[in-house]
């Protein structure tokens, strides 16, 4: 034990000089870490890539323990919480319907105005396989990396709002700096009014809000969304609401990074994945083998008819010659049998 029972061993040489040199080295390391972080970042991604399978395996039970311990305090408010959630859910359904209607209306207006379309976002869904919680650090590790097309700077969201940004990418892991992290700074807009501000993390649960215009007065409850300034983050991602802590305005985040298990990584620059164009054989009429009642001849001289690729067992449509023969046969038949129109009379 570290007490009087030990006879203290003393090293040889000059320990004070050694400590002084080491202290200088440590100070150099601090400066180097700020100036040349790429080297150390690479080592970190190697580490996270190497330990990813282990973290993935431990994710389930550890998350269960974490949620159980974290949720112990909520056992006594489960009933009231459930009632509150039901009410909230009903309201959200109404809002969802309203949003869908407005979305369609917005699309129509954009078409009418020939407006530039909003950038479409591609996304990668990833599991949270780790969280690092240090006094000056708030990060998480995801199980998607370069192999899945993840790039540094991309925004990470859960089903409620933005969580953070990717800052390191390994082959199949990525590190996320959370909005609450001390080094996190993102441009946001406070709505309504589109007031530009910077959301600054300080390792508390509610990051600070710094408006760029002096004299601007915020109101509690206003919505905070990403502004998209700088082109790194998409505009309009929900972030949180404005709160007041007694001395300054802060952001109550919508997303809860400590509870998030699955998140989406949004890529602003990559085109979203499009489903493959259906082949002719995939179309329901052809795939079902349904023949049209009346064939309309193609009268356009420039039109080129591409033969359909039919699945096995489906009868091909009649050719022009076969159609003529069919019409002639129909006329011949009409001479002997009454047409439905004639039959009616």
């Amino acid at each position: 034990m570290a007490n009087g029972t030990w006879k203290i061993a003393r090293g040889k040489g000059s320990p004070q000089l050694s400590i002084a040199i080491v202290a200088v080295l440590a100070a150099v390391l601090v400066v180097l870490g700020r100036a040349q972080s790429t080297l150390f970042d690479r080592a970190r991604t190697y580490f996270s890539d190497a330990t990813a399978p282990m973290l993935e395996a431990a994710r389930g039970p550890v998350n269960a323990i974490g949620h159980w311990v974290g949720g112990m305090g909520q056992i006594f408010v489960v009933y009231s919480e459930n009632q509150k959630l039901k009410e909230e859910n009903a309201k959200l359904r109404q809002w969802q319907n309203a949003a869908l209607v407005l979305e369609q209306r917005l699309k129509r207006y954009q078409l009418l105005l020939n407006a530039v379309q909003d950038p479409t976002l591609s996304s990668v869904t990833a599991h949270v396989i780790g969280r690092a919680n240090r006094p000056f650090l708030d990060t998480m590790i995801l199980d998607a990396g370069k192999n899945q097309g993840v790039k540094p700077g991309e925004s990470v969201v859960d089903d409620r709002g933005m969580i953070g940004r990717i800052y390191l990418v390994g082959q199949h892991t990525a590190w996320v700096v959370l909005l609450t992290d001390l080094s996190s700074r993102i441009p946001v807009a406070v709505e309504p009014g589109h007031i530009q501000a910077i959301l600054s993390g300080d390792n508390t649960t509610a990051p600070g809000l710094e408006t760029s215009r002096p004299g601007v007065v915020l109101k509690i409850g206003q919505q905070i969304v990403t502004s998209g300034d700088g082109g790194l983050l998409p505009a309009g991602l929900p972030v949180g609401t404005v709160t007041w802590n007694g001395s300054e305005f802060r952001a109550a985040l919508l997303a809860d990074a400590t509870e998030a298990d699955d998140v989406r990584i949004l890529d602003l620059r990559q085109a979203p994945e499009q489903p493959p164009t259906p082949a002719a054989g995939d179309l329901p009429v052809v795939a079902g083998g349904i023949q049209p009642l009346v064939q309309t001849p193609n009268t356009s001289p420039n039109a080129q008819v591409k033969p359909l690729q039919l699945p096995a067992g489906v009868a091909p449509p009649l050719s022009q010659q076969q159609m003529e023969q069919a019409k002639a046969a129909a006329k011949a038949g009409a001479a002997t049998a009454p047409t439905p129109a004639e039959d009616d009379h």
Binding site: A26, V30, V31, S37, F40, R44, F47, R134, F136, L137
Partner: peptide
């Protein structure tokens, strides 16, 4: 420092002090 994902040198200097 390396494993925690933070800036390098913070704990190194703290340990040495």
């Amino acid at each position: 420092d390396l494993l925690s994902g933070g800036a390098m040198g913070i704990w190194a200097l703290s340990f040495v002090v």
